[in-house]
Design a protein around this nucleic acid. Sequence first.
RNA 1: GCGAGAGUGGCGGAACGGCAGACGCGCGGGACUUAGGAUCCCGUGGGGAAACCCGUGCAGGUUCGAGUCCUGCCUCUCGCACCA
Length: 871
Amino acid sequence: MAARPLYPFAEIEARARVLWEKEELFRARLKGPGRKFYALMMFPYPSGHLHVGHGRNYILGDALVRHRLTRGDRVLSPMGWDAFGLPAENAAIKGGKHPRVSTLENIARMKEQLRRWGCGYDWTREIAACHPGYYRWTQWMFLQLFKAGLAYRKRAPVNWCPSCATVLANEQVIDGQCERCGTEVEPRDLEQWFFKITAYAQRLLDDLGRLDRWPDRVVAMQRNWIGRSEGVELDFPLVPGAEVVRCFTTRPDTLYGVTFVAMAPEHPLLDRVCQGSPRGEAIRAFAARARRQSFLERASADAPKEGIDTGVKVRTPLSDRLVPLWVVNYVLPEVGTGAVMGVPAHDERDFAFANAHDLPVQVVIEPPDGVPEGGLREAYTGPGRQTNSGAFDGLPSTEGWQRIAEESERRGVGRRAVTYRLRDWLISRQRYWGAPIPIVSCGRCGLVPVPEEALPVLLPEDVEFRPTGESPLARSPAFVETSCPRCGGKARRETDTMDTFVDSSWYFLRYLSPRDETRPFDRALVERWLPVDQYIGGVEHAILHLLYARFFTKVLHDLGHVGFDEPFAALFTQGLITKTAYHCPEHGWLAWSPALEAHVASGSRVCPETTHARSAEAPPLHVSLHKMSKSKGNTVAPEPLIERFGADAVRLYTLFVGPPEKEAEWDDAAIVGQYRFLGRVHDLVHSLGKPAAEGPEARSESPSPPLEAALRSAHAALRSVTEDFEEGFHFNTAIARLHSLFDDVGKAAPLARTPADRRALAEAVRLGVQMLAPFAPHVAEDLWSASGGSGSIFRAPWPEHDPGLAAAREVEIVLQVNGRVRSRLLVPAGAGEEEIRARAIADERVREWTAGKTVAKTIVVPGKLVNFVVR
RNA sequence: GCGAGAGUGGCGGAACGGCAGACGCGCGGGACUUAGGAUCCCGUGGGGAAACCCGUGCAGGUUCGAGUCCUGCCUCUCGCACCA
């Protein structure tokens, strides 16, 4: 039974939507007077339904955009769809619809959701990554990188997800599992396409320093991810032999402590080593076994450190000793040079390995407390004085570091080097629903790029979606068989598609000219509108998407396509919305339902899925907070809430739930508070109606104290709410102020008697409604016209606060004795120190507390407090 | 281990070094109702009859005054991680 609504939000919201559409409120004016403001919200993947967690992003951005509109800025707030990707294809495999069909349906549904939330965009600029008019230019981007030598193909050990039947980028592997389906990832050697993002590692790192309007957290994560380390490459010659094993180290100061050298089982010198060793076969067998382990297994901290002594020796540079060469599982081919020098005394891993395999420990950095009796019990990794280090003895290790690096360079046995953790970006996917890589493979000409004028390379419609490890495109002869653009001979198309992160690495450029069929973007417009003034999105994209978009922008800059090299001037990452999720060891994640919630609230920890007799021993429910996700069944759909409380109340609650950069726990029940508030405001403003025409006395006379107080409250609120829009976006406190303001106004309203009173009241109401508008835009339109405003409230300029009114007329001074509040005093706002002191001393309560004691000191903070220090 | 952040009522959360707990939920009481899980009003950190006292993860420190600043811990969250 639907209770009668507190106010007719359904009609009000429908009317407001019509007004905004008629007014074309969000239509961007790309040229003309006024400051430009490019507000960008990360475009969503069209999964089918937005939940309230997504809403936080869009509502925050919408409030910001609406505020900017009232500031007279030329706002560009576009929206689009990150529409390629695995889920649509997986759905097709399950026997459903073609990915194109399901994607378009999802887009339509989600667009309507955004509309119902009241989020406004310039829909004339809508883009979808799966549209040929878009992916044509994604392919164009690929060609630019290819021509610049930044896209290349190579056989490489890659992360393979057996369930999704595709390779994954390093970034898509979480704890050794596929980020999408959770299946354990396997290592495989495959021909793959890469973007050479490592060529930009240093610049991506350096330019982080310019991103002063990005969250520190995100900058730190990117820095971490790029993972620069400075060190020295040292050459260890095989003895006998001409080859050298090259080791990268960040601790050249420990060179004299090397007691073995360890290399990865994938190391290119492995064959050569096996030939020179009587144990060749055993080494080969060990290496083959180690290679089958996943990188995760080998790289995890508690994995057993296995290795085999090759019997081959290498000569250490400078220190000139013969040490054994080992092949070990814990050295990875992709890191550094794929070989490390082993210094058990000063490296924890080497210490553990040396202990397990009886290798000597040679101390070369003196710990501050000396070496304990009986040798080191653990590796000493701190700084100290060089010892047992030949000519370098006695130096502090920091200096030893430099001197050994210099000496190795001078003798040609080493060189300073920088390595990065960042790997090249693997962009090929053996899947259908993505942009085809625009390359043709010709027996005579090799890999030939598709000419730009021949783009797009269209995705064929009729393919089978069974995942086999090969792209579905490979099974479409009409797609595969083609002619070489260079020699005209028979050729085959590349059948892999691009990682969807490629699509999203440049979309912010396309919004400026979304329908342009002649070029990817309009340079003149892009130069005028980029970088994005405010980017808003989830912190989950702190590394991947943002790093790739920065990379693309730098590449486009270097190739002369744009004049800037950072795409996003300011970034705001909002915190996740979490909700309690229920998990049962037997039944997995249980979909949330009111019944389940009640079940758990009743104190039961027994899984409700188990209804039969043995339910007493049924597995218990685990209840914990989780990010909203479909797989955990704890998503909250906005529709029922909008139905019951209206979009404005849901918006207010979403913003009110906590500071936007922090995680917040969703609670449906708490929305009612915002709903009640809006109901009160609605009734209040409608009961006051339109202000009558003022006589001259309304201006000249001053309002009575309660009305003046309400007006002062409005101006004070305006000052602080305006500040919230300038930085931080802490709309939770802004909304709290509006609660208080309308409370004050509601109490003062019945006391209005004179024309001056009514004028003050009308102004307080008008300011309150204007401040409310960005957060609760629909009802604000209604209140605007009910209180005499004309046209859309978003066409009215954001008000300026009156500093005289925003400051209180009287202030309360706290009177302390020894730091404890004992009394209070009301003084005029501008009261000076002497006046306050005199009145404070005269205060009766103060006299009681200071009686018989000596006042040692009196602190007076005008406008704040007086503190008497007594003994 | 490295990096970032957070610990405040029953809950979400407020507090330029200056009245701790704004605002909201919940809860208690009342009003209005045939009725209420609607709405409105009042109350709501703990102790105490009161005066007052105690309270912001723990231990110190600076200060007239510390949730806030400093030192050292503890716990939790997030990111990275045998990274050579």
